[in-house]
């Protein structure tokens, strides 16, 4: 599966691959809870964090993950304007590849960059998010968080709400959770989604009542405030009122609903502070913890060819 090629999108992974990565992540989480938070398995391996778009959190999460596996991590950050200096993204990546890394972690503002780069690189790639396409490790950590809590994915009502159109998280969530049998609802103002999103297997709704009623899981996406300037919604006030999640709406969901958010949260916009801080339902920090474990698992499964271990 992922070995040798990397993880560039959940649309390319099978159910078994997803389950294997999540399963391993639970074992990885145990390591993160010990006093010695490090195992020697990737000693001597080099992990490159190649970020063409700044994201301190995701980069740090990958960096911690790699270090807990004893890999060496090197960070390269390029402003998206680096190509104005004349070097193409392909050339940049190939230059770094010449230093013989074992895996690339890449974040880039262009959808489809992973497909382009994997045609030019021999080194496997783990996507840390491409444009408005996918953010596979976020999708996987969301799955892990739900699995952790609900012990299953199959048959759960999962609501993904917010700016679906511009969200790489929404797309990875539906690809991953869809394969594992969740009933996914997309809830969003019609300017931030199209009816065509039903083709991904989600149910598209503009009605908060329909979206949140009996939900097992609610994933609120971050609303990028600059969208308001482009006229996709008129004001944060109205957005919060009609499309945000507050204590009142949370009551529509199942009593044991969990609320997730990829962060950073706009308090009072997509998520009211009351919901964000609700210890009973909010799993936002759990997602961050699981993010490291998922990324340890992703790196571990991506590096090397692998064989079953026998020493008899």
């Amino acid at each position: 599966m992922v070995s040798g090629k990397g993880i560039i999108g959940l649309k390319y992974l099978g159910k078994d691959d997803i389950e294997k990565i999540v399963e391993t992540a639970f074992s990885m989480r145990d390591i993160s809870k010990r006093s010695v938070k490090k195992v020697p398995t990737l000693r001597g391996k080099t992990v490159i964090n190649l970020f063409f778009e700044s994201s301190t959190r995701t980069k740090t999460s990958f960096e911690i993950a790699a270090k807990r596996l004893s890999a060496d991590v090197v960070n390269f950050s390029y402003a998206s304007s680096s190509t104005s200096k004349g070097e193409t993204t392909i050339d940049t990546a190939k230059n770094i590849e010449a230093m013989n890394p074992d895996v690339f972690i890449i974040r880039h503002a262009s959808s489809g960059i992973m497909e382009l780069l994997s045609r030019h690189l021999k080194t496997p790639i783990i996507s840390a998010g491409d444009g408005t396409n996918e953010h596979p490790t976020q999708g996987l950590l969301d799955i892990m968080t739900i699995r952790d809590e609900k012990k299953r994915i199959d048959g759960l009502k999962v609501v993904v709400a917010g700016d679906i159109y511009h969200s790489r998280v929404a797309r990875s969530d539906i690809y991953g959770m869809g394969k594992l049998g969740a009933k996914v609802y997309f809830f969003s103002p019609p300017t931030l989604i199209t009816e065509d999103y039903a083709s991904l297997g989600a149910r598209v709704t503009y009605d908060a009542q329909e979206a949140f009623t009996d939900a097992d899981v609610i994933i609120m996406l971050r609303i990028q405030l600059e969208r308001q300037a482009t006229g996709l919604f008129p004001s944060t006030r109205e957005y919060a009122k009609v499309f945000g999640l507050n204590e009142q709406r949370l009551k529509l969901a199942k009593p044991d609903v969990i609320v997730m958010h990829p962060g950073p949260i706009n308090r009072g916009l997509e998520l009211s502070s009351g919901v964000a801080d609700n210890k009973e339902h909010s799993r936002v920090l759990k997602q961050v913890e699981n993010g490291v474990s998922i990324r340890m698992s992703a790196i571990y499964h991506t590096i090397g060819e692998g064989h079953e271990y026998t020493d008899n």
Partner: peptide, 9 residues
């Protein structure tokens, strides 16, 4: 691990 441990769960 140099030979790769990737597939082992």
């Amino acid at each position: 691990a140099a030979k790769g441990a990737g597939r082992a769960i």
